[in-house]
């Protein structure tokens, strides 16, 4: 009986733990192992090749291009998302019926299928029959090749990603704003503080923990963007939108180069876990900040 009682909690956690081990932790080790090997599914054995896959990756222009494009995408999209989201949230923080409706509308894309959104926006930005060029046309402007122009395609992806994710940022910011004590605003009103001034001196600093949280979350997310790339541009034109996970997919599942794909996965993993650890430091600071 006591034996069984001691076993009880283990039985409760076992199913979750087994699946986490099988499909999350063991694969990390497996990736590491595969990254030191050469294999393409066809050969019967997978010889150990040391750091050769890593050397090839670091010598490859595709990889550096990918890192550059992903960084650019991140640097463009994250400040845009957070800046807009905070401004909109500052307005939507009040509780009226129309604010609720607007919040719902803004939040909707973040739970909608990314594939659908990517397909719909492929039409929106298509050259001949797209919505954007039709609107430009009514102002007498010529057609723009949004997704075929290497200088524009990445901006389009930044726009679509922002459109999809901003509702999430807004909801989180609203929760952060609601936690700011009302008395601070009342005090500022007594002192005759101007609205912009109050926003800069009270709202922005006090919502900083939320900003940190969203900053790290959205950077990690931006580094893993795949679906909109795969559907809208396939990494093109001429590699202009070839982000890291897209490259990983191409190497692993189009070229079937398991060793090199795994090595790239490991490199990206190290990068992202580094960022995640930074995030947990920041959340630690947030707890401190509130106390």
């Amino acid at each position: 009986m006591t034996m069984l009682r001691k076993l009880t909690p283990y039985l409760f956690v076992a199913p979750l733990m087994i699946f986490i081990a099988l499909f999350t932790y063991i694969p990390i080790l497996a990736s590491l192992n595969l990254s030191f090997r050469e294999w393409n599914f066809l050969t019967p054995d997978m010889p150990f090749v040391g750091f050769r896959n890593y050397e090839q990756l670091l010598a490859s222009r595709d990889v550096w291009n990918s890192l550059w494009v992903t960084t650019l995408f991140t640097v463009l999209s994250v400040p845009l998302r957070l800046g807009l989201a905070l401004m909109i949230a500052a307005y939507l923080v009040r509780e009226t019926m129309h604010v609720r409706l607007l919040r719902g509308a803004l939040f909707l894309p973040s739970v909608t299928s990314t594939v659908s959104i990517a397909v719909v926006f492929s039409w929106v930005f298509s050259t001949d029959y797209g919505m954007v060029n039709a609107i430009l046309g009514t102002f007498g402007l010529g057609k723009v090749q949004w997704l075929q122009n290497p200088h524009l395609a990445l901006w389009v992806l930044v726009f679509v990603n922002t459109w999809k994710q901003i509702g999430y940022d807004i909801i989180i910011y609203i929760a952060g704003l609601q936690a700011i004590p009302r008395e601070l605003y009342d005090a500022a009103a007594v002192d005759g503080g101007k609205r912009l001034h109050v926003f800069r001196r009270i709202t922005m600093p006090l919502v900083m923990p939320t900003t940190y949280f969203l900053l790290v979350i959205s950077v990690i997310e931006a580094f893993q963007v795949f679906t909109i790339v795969n559907i809208m541009t396939r990494g093109g034109p001429a590699g202009a939108t070839d982000m890291l996970v897209n490259l990983l997919y191409e190497i692993g599942f189009v070229l079937f180069d398991i060793g090199r794909g795994s090595a790239l996965a490991v490199l990206l993993f190290i990068l992202l876990v580094g960022l995640a650890i930074l995030k947990s430091r920041i959340i630690g600071r947030k707890v401190h900040y509130e106390a």
């Binding site: 979750l16 733990m17 986490i20 999350t24 595969l34 580094f223 398991i258 996965a265 990206l268």
Partner: peptide, 29 residues
Amino acid sequence: FRGANLLFAATVATLMIPSHISLIPNYLT
């Protein structure tokens, strides 16, 4: 229970683990 902290930490840590790392191994498994 013994190991509870470790197992819980392992559960929470999955939030930080990017899913792409398991793509190729899970496919092979």
